[in-house]
């Protein structure tokens, strides 16, 4: 392990992003030493350096209103940023090579995939072979889904978790991979981190369990190394047991919401 023991966390905000507060709250609850919420434009101006952090989070929201497709303009902002000093591409590749962590949630996940960071970071800033598009029913929907963790995927964030319930809140959550070779690679390398599942916890294509018609029922992807992870559902929205839609039907619940497990795994790894 090359990472320091600080868990210094950078959350990028602004430009239509909106989950910074609850994401920061989850980090603080899960062992972060320091959490900075930084406006994306300041980051793109080069005012904040990635190397001062161990954990980078791309949060949910509507980057530039998701016009031109979710997160598309933000991806361009990163690709064509005119900052002085070290390029963003370089900063990110050093960050990843140092086995530090990147998490993308919802809009942040769409961003990571479209920038090429997921599921194979070597493509970042250059090519893109996976994408996310409109839900098959063309509706934005807020609903809780059952998630099954792919036991063969080796990312850091879902360690020790086999099943998880989280809310999805998106209109463009359908993962699309059309290149057969790339499909094969994702499957062979087990880069799908979580599947949409039915009430029994079995992977399913059936709506609304799979809320968007995603390829292979994928809800989350990771890179091969396992330090980059992105998902459509919102773990930060399940930060307390009373977030669960059925909490009033359950007895003797621990205070934590299960979404915190994702964050705790991150800080356990970083500590």
């Amino acid at each position: 392990m090359t990472v320091g023991s600080k868990g210094r966390t950078l959350i990028l905000s602004g430009l239509g992003l909106n989950c910074e507060k609850e994401t920061a709250y989850c980090c603080e609850k899960s062992g972060a030493k320091k959490v900075d919420i930084v406006h994306t434009l300041l980051f793109l101006n080069g005012q904040v350096k990635l190397k001062e952090y161990d954990f980078l989070i791309f949060i949910g929201g509507f980057l530039d209103g998701d016009y031109l497709g979710s997160a598309k303009v933000a991806v361009n902002r990163f690709k064509f940023a005119r900052l002085e000093g070290e390029s963003l591409k370089r900063q990110l590749s050093d960050f990843i090579a140092a086995e530090k962590l990147i998490l993308g949630i919802c809009n942040g996940f769409q961003f990571m995939v479209k920038l090429g960071l997921l599921p194979d970071e070597s493509m970042a800033f250059q090519s893109q072979k996976a994408s996310l598009t409109q839900n098959h029913n063309a509706l934005f929907e807020d609903r809780w889904v059952q998630l099954k963790v792919n036991p063969k995927n080796s990312n850091i964030f879902t360690k020790g978790i086999s099943q998880l319930e989280l809310p999805v809140r998106h209109g463009e959550g359908k993962i699309v991979v059309t290149d057969p070779d790339f499909q094969k690679r994702i499957l062979n390398d087990e880069l799908i981190a979580m599947y949409y599942a039915d009430e029994k916890g079995e992977q399913t294509a059936e709506y609304p369990h799979n809320p968007n018609g995603s390829w292979e029922n994928a809800a989350a992807l990771s890179n091969k190394r396992g330090n980059l992870f992105g998902l459509m559902p919102h773990p930060e929205a399940y930060n307390h047991y009373t977030n669960h839609p059925q909490w009033t039907r359950r007895e003797n619940q621990g205070e934590d919401g299960d979404g915190l497990l994702i964050f705790k795994n991150a800080y356990r790894y970083l500590s």
Partner: peptide, 15 residues
């Protein structure tokens, strides 16, 4: 109702 985000901000208790 489903087409409205009713839990962003992470403080949802009764939806």
């Amino acid at each position: 109702i489903r087409q409205y985000d009713h839990e962003v901000k992470g403080g949802s208790v009764i939806k």
